[in-house]
């Protein structure tokens, strides 16, 4: 039963990675990256790695998105 959940999660993971890499607008990519990290956190919990999942949830889903968004705001406001 947990195998089916894992397969569904991995399909969603690859789909969100594809959206993040090949979307037309840049902001969509950055937004989708946080969902990618959240799916990765759940897969790591199923793999019984709570420390790794906690670090991934803290850094990749939280801090990196703020870094990206402030970079985008700085690179468009100069003109």
């Amino acid at each position: 039963m947990i195998e089916i959940i894992l397969m569904l999660l991995i399909l969603l993971l690859v789909a969100s990675a594809a959206i993040a890499l090949f979307s037309k607008k840049l902001l969509n990519s950055i937004i989708t990256l946080s969902i990618f990290s959240a799916l990765l956190v759940i897969i790591l919990i199923i793999f019984q790695a709570p420390d790794l999942a906690l670090a991934e949830a803290v850094i990749a889903a939280g801090i990196t998105t703020s870094f990206f968004i402030i970079t985008i705001n700085k690179t468009e406001g100069v003109k």
């Binding site: 420390d51 999942a53 906690l54 670090a55 803290v58 850094i59 939280g62 801090i63 703020s66």
Partner: peptide, 29 residues
């Protein structure tokens, strides 16, 4: 909690430290 219980539960110095920096991000925004 994450820092002090780092040797008993998931967490530790890195995760707790990053949450401290998330506090500063929230204050700035």
């Amino acid at each position: 909690f994450l820092i002090a219980y780092g040797h008993l539960s998931p967490g530790g110095g890195f995760s707790g430290g990053v949450i401290i920096s998330a506090i500063s991000i929230l204050i700035i925004f």
